[in-house]
Simulated assay, not measured.
Amino acid sequence: MLTILGPLAGEGAQLPLYSFRVPAGFPSPAADHIERRISLDELLDIRAPHMYLVRIEGDSMQGAGIFCGDLVAVDRSIEAEHGHIVIAAVNAEPVCKRLHKRGNEVILQSANRNFAPRYIMEGDELIIWGVVTFSVRAHEKA
């Protein structure tokens, strides 16, 4: 199950990008470490109008690092190829799966062993809505 949040707005707010990397803790982000200012649009390589956001529901893609509640950026301009994680509709039902192609066979594969692969059979309608390029996860308090 997916929740499509819609197209992205043009330009976002500019946030500081610090030049240091944080291995475990978080040192004081002193102003002299600011490398430049970037927007999340730039950081996630979001280029509207062919980009949109989807909230993932369910745990079938956990093995790919995509968890229930995550937000994914989807690019409609990328030609979906074998191995891409895609947002697709199978018989009008939206899914997030890894695309596998073997000859003429098309399989939508979960990244969780508890979910069987979805073989696209003759008579099934498969529409690829786009390729997942980034995911964003909220790290809430435990």
Results as ranks from 00 to 15, higher is better:
T3N: 13
T3Y: 07
L5S: 06
G6C: 08
G6W: 13
P7Y: 13
P7T: 13
A13R: 15
L15F: 14
P16F: 10
L17G: 03
S19A: 14
R21F: 07
A24D: 09
G25R: 10
P27S: 05
S28D: 12
A30Y: 13
D32P: 01
H33N: 14
H33I: 11
H33C: 09
H33L: 15
I34K: 06
I34M: 08
R36V: 10
R37E: 11
R37T: 13
S39F: 14
S39P: 09
S39I: 11
L40D: 02
L40N: 05
L40W: 11
D45V: 08
R47E: 14
A48V: 08
P49V: 01
P49Q: 03
H50D: 14
V54Y: 07
R55K: 15
R55M: 12
R55Q: 14
I56E: 04
D59P: 00
D59F: 01
S60I: 04
S60A: 07
M61I: 04
Q62W: 05
G65P: 03
G65Q: 07
F67S: 07
C68G: 06
C68E: 12
G69C: 09
G69L: 11
G69P: 07
G69A: 06
L71P: 06
V72E: 06
V74L: 05
D75Q: 04
R76Q: 13
R76C: 01
R76V: 02
S77G: 04
S77A: 06
S77C: 03
I78N: 02
E79G: 04
E79W: 02
E81K: 06
H82S: 03
G83D: 00
G83A: 02
G83T: 01
H84I: 04
I85W: 01
I85V: 15
V86N: 01
A88I: 10
V90K: 00
V90T: 06
V90A: 03
N91L: 07
N91Q: 03
N91V: 05
A92G: 05
P94I: 09
P94K: 04
P94T: 01
V95C: 02
V95A: 01
K97V: 07
K97N: 06
K97E: 02
R98H: 07
R98V: 05
R98N: 03
H100P: 01
K101W: 08
R102T: 10
R102S: 05
G103F: 10
N104C: 00
E105Y: 02
V106Y: 04
L108D: 04
Q109R: 12
S110M: 05
R113A: 11
N114E: 13
N114H: 13
N114F: 10
P117C: 00
P117Y: 02
R118I: 15
Y119V: 13
M121E: 15
G123L: 05
I127V: 15
I127L: 12
I127P: 03
I128V: 13
I128H: 01
W129V: 08
G130S: 07
V131G: 00
V132Y: 03
T133E: 08
F134H: 15
A138S: 12
A138D: 11
A138P: 01
H139W: 14
K141M: 11
K141Q: 10
A142T: 06
